[in-house]
Structure formats: C-alpha cells, structure tokens
Simulated scan of single mutants.
Amino acid sequence: MDLDLAGKRALVTGSNSGIGKGIAQVLAGEGCTVAIHGRDHARCEDAVAEIVAAGGKAVSATGDLASEAGCAGVAASLHDQLGGIDILVNNAGGRASSHRNDGVERPENPGWLETPWADWVWTYEQNVGAAVRLIQSYVPGMKERGWGRVINIASAAATQTEPDLADYAAAKAAMVNLTSSLAKTLAHTGITVNTISPGAVETPSLRRSFTDLAARLGWDSEDWDEIERRMTRELIPIAADRFGRPEDIGRMVALLASPLSAYMTGANYRVDGGQCRSIN
C-alpha cells in the first residue's frame, strides 16, 4: 500500500538507535525525508548513512531535548536543513535510573519509595518536557500549512501499572493524556495527534538486560531465541510469542503519519503483542 508519505519531512527524536532508529528507517522507506536526532553526533551520522545507503533521505540534528537551549538548537538546525517539519514523532525518553550521568550511583530499578524526586523531574523532562517543547515549536508551522502529524511514543507502562517504575510510568501516562488534550485543541486544523504504546521491544539494551536476567535466574542457556521464548511465556506473557521489533513500531507510526489516517486522532494505540492485560 502506498501511504502517500513521499516528500513529507519527519523528525523522530531519539532515533540514532533502538525503537527510534527503526521508526526513522520505516518512514524513510515510505519516502519521507527523516531527521535523525540524538545526543551523540557520530551515532546520528551513522544512522543517516544507513538510510542514505538504502536509498532514503535523511539529515541529522544533535541536542539534549530536556533543556530549552537544546530544543532551540535542534529546531534551528532543522529549520536551516529542511525548512520545517510535517511529522513530529516524540520518541526520546528514558528513565533517570538508566540514563542519568551525574556521578550518583543508583540501582537500575529503584523502588517507588526509593526513587528521589530529582529522578522524577529528570524523567519527566526527558519525556514530557521534550515533547511539549517540540510540539510548541513545530505545530504552529503545521497549522499554517493546514496539515501535520504529532505522534507520541508512550509505553505499555502508561496504562498497565506494575510495582515501582514510578517516575517512568507516570511520565508515559502524561504523554497519553496530553495527546488527547492536544488533539482536541487542534480540531479543524488538519493536524492529528496520537499515541503509540509499545510493549517490550527487542533493542540491544533489552537483549543485554534480559540476557543478564536469565543468567541471574539460573537459566541454562545463552541462546537469545531460547531466552526470548522463555521470557515471553514465563515472565512477561506476550500472546504474539515474541518481543516486538523496532520496525513493528515503525509501521504503526507510518500508518498514523499517513494522510490515509486522517480520521484517527486523540487515541492511544497499543503495539505490544498482547502484553497488556486490560482492554484499553
């Protein structure tokens, strides 16, 4: 199916690796000119080179979106390179305990009561703060052109809560909420706003984490296929019998970005292989 995306300009934040990179590659394959973003310039350029080698079009922009200055720098760079953005995919995020680099040692998954407020603020800025700044930067141009797409990447944790993961789950829940509000605000403008909530997606970091977990559990296997099979049946039950792949998320992004999806707005779409146990 031709999704009618040729010539559209798309910014995918946090796209020099993992889910974001998979999203960017799918959009480039559909004819978009994709802006690769990250905090590591070399990795961004490598991701751009991969897309170009595959026949796509891409540019890069480097900056920390958790600050006003970082967002302004990314926006200025892309204005110079592309003139504007038609499709904004707010994928950058993370959790303080996994990504903060302030010299303070903290457990990888601190408990609810042990997560300091500074970590809550960091996580919120990286997820919600970054999204809001870019929405406020790019949506006015979309309104002037009478067309645009905002796609926020949340998480299964946003609607199916588990013990702990307190700061991350709350920030992702805020992403789902702000999507609904923004969609109503942008009624009659030609802009749609949606959320995608991925389940567990196989990225290099997930593979490392679950391979280490399998070893701690005493599983007698270092074979990833066997680890994935046992994880998705015994620890994280997933009806699809596997973890997601970045391109699974990318395909849903491409669908929501397409002009063919103009009647889809203000919604949260789960792409989780049946991981969530609730009906919504």
Rank of each mutant, 00 (worst) to 15 (best):
L5Q: 06
L134D: 12
L82C: 05
A154M: 05
A170W: 14
V176P: 06
E114Q: 08
R208F: 11
A215Y: 13
F210H: 05
E108F: 06
D225Y: 00
G94S: 05
L217I: 02
D241K: 07
G73S: 09
I51H: 11
I51N: 12
A35V: 01
D2Q: 08
W117I: 12
L186T: 02
E226L: 01
G38A: 07
E50V: 07
A169H: 09
A6H: 10
N268A: 15
A158L: 11
V121A: 14
K184R: 10
V121Y: 10
E226M: 00
T179S: 11
V26N: 02
D212S: 03
G55S: 06
P198A: 05
I191Y: 06
R270F: 14
R43F: 10
R245H: 10
M175I: 13
Q81A: 14
L134M: 14
N177F: 00
R233E: 15
H41I: 01
T62Q: 14
S98I: 08
S98M: 07
D86L: 01
I51K: 12
A200C: 09
I23T: 07
V193Q: 03
V89S: 05
K57T: 15
R133Q: 13
K8R: 12
G18Q: 12
A154W: 09
N101F: 14
P198S: 05
R100C: 03
R145W: 09
E228D: 05
L217C: 02
R39I: 12
A187T: 15
D225Q: 04
T185Y: 02
P140N: 13
A183W: 03
V128T: 13
L182V: 13
E202L: 11
S67P: 04
D46Q: 14
D220T: 07
A169D: 14
D272G: 04
W117P: 00
Y269V: 03
W219T: 15
A240T: 01
A239W: 01
L255C: 12
G29H: 03
R9Q: 11
G63E: 08
N268E: 15
S67Y: 05
G18Y: 10
A24S: 07
D212P: 00
P237Q: 05
S15P: 09
D64L: 03
M175R: 00
C44Y: 02
D223I: 05
S77N: 07
E247H: 07
V59A: 08
A24T: 12
A66P: 08
N194R: 05
A75F: 02
L134P: 06
K57I: 12
D119E: 10
L5K: 03
I238N: 01
V271A: 11
L5R: 06
Q136E: 13
A92E: 12
D164G: 00
A166K: 00
T189A: 04
R145C: 02
V139D: 09
V201T: 15
Q136L: 09
